[in-house]
Design a protein around this nucleic acid. Structure first.
Length: 218
DNA sequence: CCCCAGGCGTCCA
DNA sequence: TGGACGCATGGG
């Protein structure tokens, strides 16, 4: 809560990068679609797919639900895994339609109910569900991704076998439960990952975290 | 040519 | 429970 490694890291990142103002997307629905499309995929590819969807005005709950799978697959092709992601998007839309009728109805759910509902959908795992909960519904849930684990691992703050929920607990145990903080923190971690924490070619010398915990970002 | 990206489900021991 | 594998495009 007060002074710890996570607060120090946050301070250095926000000083270096400035506020990220995430998630890139105009509506809650667009954020949810982007969260599915960006699974193991570069965001630039997702942007193209989102633009395709917008160009024919099908980036909406009812519009996308009515769209034949073959057309949806064609539109999201630039985002990769287009057959898998077509199914996942449709699973998402149908699950909402079946249980809550409209996308907006999800806003009335309490955070845990919302999170468990999303996790129950095939194709939505922990990171995708939590991204939606935090960024589309503004609830204080910390999002963990591959960059998060890599950075914490390289600073010896967690161990190799820590799974998603262990890493998430590490943040929630050491930070105030603050939606704005969680929002900005994850976005800053992604910025750090993209710029400095590449899987095989890390640029430790320039990383703003190089002096944290006595060691470089590897 | 190589490696990688804001994961997830399935299969199999 | 956990490790290997498939999914696929576009950028460096």
């Amino acid at each position: 809560m007060t002074e710890n490694n996570l607060n120090t890291i946050y301070d250095k990142l926000i000083s270096h990068f400035g506020p990220q103002n995430w998630w890139p997307g105009d509506t809650g629905f667009e954020i949810c679609v982007g969260a599915i499309l960006t699974q193991n995929t570069a965001w630039t590819n997702v942007e193209t797919a989102i633009m395709n969807l917008k160009s024919i005005h099908t980036l909406g709950f009812d519009e996308m639900l009515a769209l034949p799978d073959s057309q949806l697959a064609h539109l999201i092709k630039p985002a990769g895994y287009f057959n898998v992601k077509t199914k996942r998007l449709k699973n998402f839309l149908k699950a909402i339609k079946d249980k809550y009728e409209t996308f907006d109805a999800l806003s009335d759910l309490d955070t845990q109910t919302l999170r468990e509902f999303l996790l129950s959908i095939s194709g939505i795992g922990p990171e995708t569900a939590d991204s939606m909960v935090l960024y589309a519904f503004n609830r204080p849930i910390f999002v963990v991704d591959a960059y998060t684990k890599r950075i914490l691992l390289r600073h010896s703050l967690i161990d190799e076998e820590a799974d998603y929920f262990r890493i998430q607990d590490y943040f929630t145990d050491h930070l105030d439960e603050d939606e704005k903080l969680f929002n900005e923190y994850h976005a800053l971690i992604v910025a750090t990952g993209k710029h400095f924490c590449h899987k095989s070619k890390p640029k430790c010398d320039k990383c703003p975290l190089k002096e944290i915990n006595g060691g470089p970002t590897l």
